[in-house]
Amino acid sequence: MQLTQILTLKMDKVATIVLFLLVITTNQLKAQNAEVFQQIGYLLNDALLYSDKYITPATDAAVYQASSGWMTSAKKKELGEVTFGVNANLFFVPKLDRTFTASNNDFEFFSIEGQNSVEVPTALGNNNQYYLVGDLGGSEVRLKSPEGVNEETVFYPYLQAGVGLWYGTEVLVKYSPKTKLKKGDYQVYGAGLKHNLDQYFSENFNKTIHVSALVAYSKENLSFDFVDIQSAYGTLGINSLGSSIDTYQTQINISKTHKNLEILWGIIFNISDFNYKFDGEKGSIEEIIPLQDILNDRMKDLSKTKRNLIGEFSGRYQFNKFFVQGTLAFGKFVNTNVSLQYEF
């Protein structure tokens, strides 16, 4: 056999071996990548589960904060009459909504380090933290659970104004600047229409009793620090969790006046649409996979609509053209509001 034939045979064997190794390596890489993507899927499922339980108490509370204090008076407003108020809202965080139980049985990717289950804080909870661990492509992912606002009461200020229109109707607007909370922020704004009803009653009706109805819309935006996950594939971009809430409400209030004091009783019914998304900066893992967009698309599964029936009681006292009003809203939660108003 000639030398060239021998070399050709050897080269064919080398090529076959190289090709075989490439096939094995490629299959191994494909298998490894498939496993990594599967693990990322499990991680996303855990993030959805945790974020829902973490933020839901705060979004439920936000509806109460936005819904109370709209009706400053049940009296008929005259055309062009303007009321401007500065409000301080104080929400009392119930103990039952400050924590939830996290268990290893709930997770697909993570496990609680050193424990099977723990009481972890919601967005309205304390600043206790626990380590969650998982494995992503053979590399450990270890993070601290997110903290809550760590406050028993949540305070935010806002401005409200009303202008009297024709036929005993009043247009109302409410606006709060973005209020910084510990580990998050909150903002609400909206508009409403109030219409006086006792103007249609008999002339013999008690003139110290007033009845008005209100329809209003408010927008509540919340955002909380979530978790900053570091992995061998980069940061994941889920360090900020936000919620956008659209609330539509109707209410009716009856008031009784005595000299400079007006006492109001009201009932509120509202419907709120809740939407969630991770609204922080995208992580460096985006070079491999558009993780935040995928996760936010999955977050649409958490969207929900809720209904609330809320009672309201308030007292308003006049001195000259100024008014001081305190309002208590109650139902699942308790929310208080104090307002200083001026009419001109």
Results as ranks from 00 to 15, higher is better:
316 R>K: 14
257 T>H: 01
272 S>T: 05
281 E>S: 15
266 G>Q: 06
228 D>N: 15
203 E>D: 14
296 N>E: 02
307 R>T: 12
277 K>V: 09
212 S>K: 14
246 D>G: 14
266 G>A: 00
276 Y>Q: 00
203 E>C: 04
268 I>P: 02
294 I>N: 10
284 S>Q: 07
248 Y>A: 13
241 L>G: 02
209 I>T: 07
269 F>C: 02
280 G>F: 05
294 I>C: 13
249 Q>P: 05
229 I>F: 04
253 N>V: 03
279 D>Q: 11
306 K>I: 12
254 I>S: 08
259 K>P: 07
213 A>G: 11
251 Q>R: 12
220 E>S: 15
280 G>M: 02
276 Y>T: 05
274 F>Q: 00
281 E>K: 15
317 Y>L: 11
226 F>A: 03
214 L>S: 06
311 G>L: 04
215 V>W: 08
261 L>P: 06
303 S>T: 13
225 D>V: 15
289 I>H: 02
239 N>C: 07
202 S>N: 13
242 G>Q: 10
249 Q>L: 07
265 W>L: 08
245 I>E: 04
254 I>N: 06
305 T>H: 05
262 E>S: 00
227 V>S: 04
260 N>G: 04
222 L>F: 08
252 I>E: 12
229 I>W: 02
246 D>M: 11
260 N>H: 11
226 F>D: 03
293 D>G: 11
213 A>E: 13
240 S>Y: 11
202 S>M: 08
262 E>F: 00
264 L>T: 00
208 T>Q: 12
212 S>V: 13
244 S>M: 14
283 G>T: 06
233 Y>W: 06
241 L>E: 05
310 I>E: 03
261 L>F: 06
218 S>P: 11
286 E>W: 14
292 Q>F: 14
237 G>S: 07
224 F>T: 07
240 S>I: 13
257 T>S: 01
305 T>K: 12
315 G>S: 12
282 K>N: 13
285 I>E: 00
206 N>E: 06
201 F>T: 04
273 D>H: 13
252 I>K: 09
258 H>T: 11
255 S>H: 05
223 S>W: 07
264 L>W: 02
218 S>H: 15
205 F>K: 09
301 D>P: 09
296 N>S: 05
313 F>R: 13
220 E>A: 15
272 S>W: 04
252 I>Y: 11
299 M>N: 01
250 T>L: 14
